[in-house]
């Protein structure tokens, strides 16, 4: 990749912790990806915790054109994909004297064991 000269463009991504998602930071110039990696943390994350860093050569990123971005539009008629379309169940379950298993409830189940204090 050398013939492109010293100032090559890299995009920098990082995550704050092991459980955090990768997040875009900024771009930098460096002669190669090893050097880009060595520059990344101190240039963009001097004051925050970092658990991992990716550098990606910009020319390897397939971006959308303005026209392609128009393909991102969609109608707001898809409530069958969301809980919003099933809200009436709450009332139904109440009739059977049961609570609704909504997002809050389901996400709270986690991976923890129910009976931690077994002995």
């Amino acid at each position: 990749m050398g013939s492109e000269g010293f100032y090559q463009e890299f995009e920098v991504f990082s995550k704050r912790s092991d459980t955090a998602p990768m997040q875009y930071q900024f771009s930098l110039l460096a002669p190669n990806e090893e050097m880009a990696l060595v520059m990344a943390q101190e240039n963009f994350m001097r004051r925050e915790p970092v658990a991992d860093i990716w550098v990606v050569k910009r020319s390897n990123i397939r971006k959308m054109t303005r026209e392609e971005k128009e393909s991102l539009y969609r109608l707001d008629n898809k409530d069958y994909r969301n809980t919003k379309g099933y809200g009436y169940l709450k009332k139904k379950w109440r009739h059977y004297e049961q609570g609704m298993l909504d997002e809050k409830e389901i996400m709270s189940w986690g991976g923890k064991r129910n009976h931690d204090q077994h002995d």
């Binding site: 010293f6 100032y7 930098l28 110039l29 460096a30 060595v38 520059m39 101190e42 240039n43 001097r46």
Partner: peptide, 11 residues
Amino acid sequence: PFIEEDVAFSS
């Protein structure tokens, strides 16, 4: 030698 290095070296 270049700006990005100035920042890294200073850390």
